[in-house]
C-alpha cells in the first residue's frame, strides 16, 4: 500500500467517513464528516463510494506529499488548495504525481473541507465498522487523533480515471458570504413545552454562531429564549437537534455530539440545511424557519435525486458521442486551452 505523507497537520485535520451509526446506543458518538454532502461530492468526483474515508480539514488545511500517482478532489468550504504550488479549483478532479504536494491557504469562506483520493479513499483501519475519527475518545481514523507532521496515511495507487477532464461539479455556485442564512427546521420533541412566546422568538430572532463551535455542536448567540422549568430525563440525541440550555441559548448538536442529552430540544434542523449551517461564519445571521415533516422529507429526496443525477452524469459521460480517438483529442485540446488560458 502507498501513502500520503503529512508535512504539516493544519488546524484540525481528521479522517472521516459517514460515521459509525450502529453504536450510539452503546455511548459512541456517530462522528463522520460534519458536512456530509461535501464529503459525498468529493468522493463521487473521484469515483469512490459514499463510505470511503476522506480527509476533513478545518479552516486551515494540512500540507501533504503524495508517494504515488492518484487522483484527488477537494470539496466543501473555500479552502484554496494548491497542487505543486499552483492554485486548483474546488469540486474538480486533478491528477497527482508521485512527489506532488498539496497545500491550502486559510479558508476564505466556510469552515470544513474534504479531500478525497481515488482508489477507495484513505485506508486507515476500520473501528466498529467506520474509519471516522472521534478525537476526544482517541477512536478511529489515524491513531484516533488529528493529523500531525510525519503521519503517513495509507492509500491505493491509482493510474486511471475515466473522463477525467469532465469530472467537475459546476452547477452549484454557493453564495457563502450572504449576510443572512435561512435554516429550516421541524418541531423538536419538546417544542410543545416551550411557551408560544419562546417559539415565536426562536423563529423571529436572529442568531449567530459563537466561539464555542466544534464538531460536537455549535452554541448560538442571540436573545435568550425562556426555558421550560422542567427536569427532563436524558434521551437519545439526533443529528441537528437544537437544545436550549438553562441560560436560554440554543445549541445545534452535530456529528460528534454526546449520545444522550437532558436539555429540551426545541427543533431539529432539516438534513439538507445542515451542510449550510456548519459552513457559516460567526458574522452571518441565522434565521430559523419552520417547515413540515413532509417538506423536510421531500427536500431530502430532492437533494438525493440531484446527487444521483450527478453520479450518472459522471458515469455516462464517457459514452457520449463521439466516442474514440476524436474524443481523446478533445480532452487534450481542453487541457491545452486551459493551460494557455
Amino acid at each position: 500500500m502507498k501513502t500520503v505523507e503529512v508535512l504539516e497537520g493544519g488546524l484540525a485535520s481528521t479522517i472521516q467517513d459517514i460515521g459509525r451509526s450502529g453504536y450510539q446506543a452503546e455511548g459512541f458518538p456517530v462522528s463522520g464528516a460534519i458536512d456530509i454532502m461535501a464529503h459525498r461530492i468529493a468522493n463521487m468526483l473521484v469515483g469512490n463510494d459514499d463510505d470511503a474515508a476522506t480527509l476533513e480539514l478545518c479552516m486551515l488545511g494540512p500540507k501533504l506529499r503524495f508517494a504515488c500517482r492518484t487522483f484527488i478532489a477537494v470539496a466543501g468550504g473555500e479552502s484554496q488548495p494548491f497542487l505543486d504550488g499552483r492554485p486548483i479549483s474546488l469540486n474538480k478532479v486533478y491528477s497527482v504525481k508521485k512527489g506532488s504536494t498539496l497545500s491550502f491557504k486559510p479558508m476564505s469562506a466556510g469552515r470544513y473541507g474534504y479531500l478525497a483520493v481515488a482508489g477507495g479513499g484513505f485506508l486507515t483501519g476500520l473501528v466498529l465498522g467506520s474509519r471516522s475519527t472521534t478525537v476526544r475518545l482517541g477512536l478511529g481514523g489515524f491513531k484516533g487523533r488529528r493529523l500531525q507532521e510525519g503521519d503517513r496515511l495509507p492509500i491505493n495507487e491509482c493510474y486511471k480515471m475515466a473522463s477525467l477532464h469532465f469530472r467537475e461539479l459546476t452547477s452549484k455556485k454557493k453564495n457563502r458570504s450572504a449576510k443572512n442564512a435561512e435554516i429550516r427546521f421541524i418541531k423538536g420533541p419538546q417544542w410543545n413545552l416551550f411557551t408560544s412566546e419562546a417559539q415565536t422568538n426562536f423563529c423571529k430572532n436572529f442568531f449567530s454562531i459563537s466561539q464555542q463551535a466544534d464538531r460536537m455542536g455549535y452554541r448560538l448567540m442571540g436573545s435568550r429564549l425562556s426555558v421550560p422549568k422542567i427536569n427532563m430525563l436524558s434521551e437519545g440525541t439526533v443529528l441537528g437537534n437544537v437544545q436550549v440550555t438553562r441560560e436560554g441559548l440554543p445549541i445545534v448538536l452535530l456529528t460528534d455530539r454526546q449520545t444522550t442529552g437532558g436539555y429540551p430540544v426545541i427543533a431539529t434542523v432539516i438534513a439538507v440545511d445542515l451542510g449550510k449551517l456548519v459552513q457559516l461564519n460567526s458574522q452571518q445571521q441565522i434565521h430559523f424557519k419552520k417547515v413540515s415533516l413532509d417538506e423536510a422529507r421531500s427536500e431530502l429526496v430532492k437533494q438525493a435525486d440531484e446527487l444521483e443525477k450527478f453520479r450518472l452524469f459522471l458515469k455516462e459521460y464517457r459514452y457520449h458521442y463521439p466516442i474514440g480517438p476524436a474524443r481523446k483529442g478533445a480532452q487534450k485540446l481542453k487541457v491545452l486551452l486551459n493551460e494557455k488560458g
Binding site: 451509526s21 450502529g22 450510539q24 446506543a25 430525563l233 436524558s234 434521551e235 437519545g236 440525541t237 439526533v238 449520545t259 444522550t260 415533516l293 422529507r297 431530502l300 429526496v301 438525493a304
Partner: peptide
C-alpha cells in the same frame, strides 16, 4: 431501521427516509 437508542423512558429510532416514512 438503522439504529435504536433506548433511554430511561424513550426509544429513539433512526430510519432510512428513502425506505420508509414516519
Amino acid at each position: 431501521i438503522i439504529a435504536t437508542i433506548p433511554a430511561y423512558h424513550t426509544l429513539t429510532v433512526n430510519f432510512d427516509a428513502f425506505r420508509t416514512s414516519f
